[in-house]
Design a protein around this nucleic acid. Sequence first.
DNA 1: CCGGATCGATTACGGATGTAAACGATGGAG
DNA 2: CTCCATCGTTTACATCCGTAATCGATCCGG
Lengths: 122, 122
Amino acid sequence: MRISTAESQVMRALWAKSPLSAEEIIAALPVDQDWADATVKTLLNRLLKKDAIAADRDGRRFLYRPLVAQGDYVHAESQGLLDRLFDGRLAPLVAHFSQREKLSDQDVADLRRLLESLDDDK
Amino acid sequence: MRISTAESQVMRALWAKSPLSAEEIIAALPVDQDWADATVKTLLNRLLKKDAIAADRDGRRFLYRPLVAQGDYVHAESQGLLDRLFDGRLAPLVAHFSQREKLSDQDVADLRRLLESLDDDK
DNA sequence: CCGGATCGATTACGGATGTAAACGATGGAG
DNA sequence: CTCCATCGTTTACATCCGTAATCGATCCGG
C-alpha cells in the first residue's frame, strides 16, 4: 500500500514528533502547505486505512503515531527514483547534482565526511 | 505538466535514442515491462499533449523525439524527492543509503572520484 | 480495385489522488 | 438540561494514471 506525496507530508509531521493530535499535525505542517483542516483529516483517514499510522484515543480526540518506519518509506521512495532514473545506482545521482546546482559546501563537506567514515569501517 | 512514471518509461527509450517510431519504442522498453501496444500508444499521445515529445511524420508513421531534456526531468524529479524526504539536501540521502544497503564498492569509488574532481575545480 | 493489416486517434474505465464540504456524535458552557 | 463547538466519519468530485479496446484512415498484397 503506497503512501502518496500528500500523505507523506502528514507522515513527515508524525515522524518528526509523535504522537500528535490532528490539530497538532495541522499546526506542524509547513506554512506554505495550507490545506483546509478537512483535507488533513482525509489524509489521516487514508493513512489509517493503509495501516501507515495508528490512532490511540485520548479523551474525546485521537493521538496519531506512525506505524511505517521513516527509514522504510524513505528507502522505498529513494530506491524507486534511483531505479527509474539512474539505473538503480547512487553515484550517478550525485554526479547529476554536482553538475546542475553546484553542490553546497555543506553538502560536499558532509559527503566527504561520510566517505571517510566508510573507510574507518573497513 | 508532470510526466508520470509510466510515461517516463517511454521518455527513457527516447532519451536513449531518438527519433524512434512507436514500434521501435515498444521494442525498446524493458522486457519485464510488457504493455499492450495500445498502452504505449496512449502514453505517446499523452506525452504529445503535454509537449514532452514531438512527432514528425515519416511516411505512414511518425517518428517521435523528446522535447523535454532528460536532465531537466531528472533534476525536477530528484529535487522533488530531496525536498520531500531530505529537507532538500543531498548528503542526507547518501547517508541514508550508506546505512541501509551498503553502498556498493563501485558507488563508493565513484563518489570518491567525484569529490576529488570537485577539489580540482577550486 | 478490394479486403485485410497497420497506424494513429478516440473512447473507456476502475482506482488513486488532491482537495474539501457535509454529517453525526459528544463533551463542555451556561 | 440544552445548544454549540469540536472531533472524527462519510461522502463528493474533478483529475490523473495505468491499462487497454475500438474506430477510422490508409497502404499493400493479390
